[in-house]
Design a protein around this nucleic acid. Structure first.
Length: 254
DNA sequence: ATGCCTTGGTACCCAAGA
């Protein structure tokens, strides 16, 4: 089973890119983030042969699931704060497999309330994944975690030293997820530095390969045992009017 | 580096992104 995560930075601006990707990559499930609007082009996605479901809000955030077969939604928000109305989480069942698609908060500027929200959100995510582990529910979680796990996951660690994506407390929150017994799928078969999923639009970051690795797939133990491959597909980042993120693709022997 | 782009919402600039 081929599952993909991709922050598209507006589904309205990137619909043709999504359709082009679906046609060439033929994933079973494409989980996208940053829809940036209340509308979702379900009919256009259906025309390419895919089902879709989404959780959206006006202007910001938003996550969607595009799949060959219909999904069963388990949760349309991250539990733990009923006052939180940001569209950043969808948990669902696809062909008997539990999947989660997240758009974690950015957290800048630091310090401040946005960073506090980021850490609180990560703590709530830990609580939810801990619950799934306790219930022995096997799952894969993918998305834009907005976390640079290690120095080798960015072009210049010194430049990111005080950033919300790389602060010690941020990386600790990520390691706490890993320590639930989860596997960073990309790092199973790729260990070298300088492999990124995001390049800023500014200052020629893409041309200079000045990027960061912030889009991830974490797998529970039994799913990790079924991992075939996990790769970053840099091609869509080269397309005209590209998203600043590129897809990460995981293949599981399901 | 308060900069550099890109998007959406609102109104011709600003917030947010990372």
């Amino acid at each position: 089973m081929k599952i993909v995560s991709w922050n598209v930075n507006s589904i309205k601006a990137r619909l043709e890119h999504v359709q082009k990707f679906l046609a060439s990559a033929q994933p079973d499930v494409l989980m996208i983030q940053e829809l940036k609007g209340l509308d979702f082009p379900e009919a256009d996605i259906k025309a390419t042969g895919y089902e879709s479901a989404f959780v959206g809000q006006k202007a910001y955030n938003g996550v969607a699931v595009i799949s060959k077969h219909p999904i069963k939604i388990i949760l349309d928000h991250l539990p733990g704060d009923e006052a939180d109305e940001q569209a950043r989480y969808i948990e669902f069942d696809y062909q008997g497999l539990r999947l989660i698609n997240i758009y974690a908060p950015n957290g800048n500027p630091t310090p401040g309330e946005k960073y506090d929200y980021k850490l609180g959100w990560m703590e709530r995510l830990h609580a939810r994944l801990s619950e799934l582990r306790a219930q022995n529910i096997q799952f894969a979680i993918g998305g834009d975690f907005n976390v640079i796990p290690e120095g080798k996951d960015c072009y210049d660690p010194k430049a990111w030293k005080d950033d919300a994506l790389f602060l010690p407390a941020t990386r600790q929150a990520f390691r706490r997820l890993i320590n639930l017994g989860l596997t960073d799928a990309f790092r199973v078969h790729h260990t070298r530095a300088g492999q990124y999923t995001f390049w800023d639009y500014q200052a020629g970051a893409w041309q200079r390969d000045n990027g960061i690795r912030i889009d991830h797939f974490l797998l529970s133990p039994s799913i990790a045992d079924k991992l075939v491959s996990c790769v970053i597909d840099k091609e869509p980042r080269e397309w005209d009017k590209a998203s600043d993120h590129t897809p990460i693709i995981v293949e599981i022997n399901w």
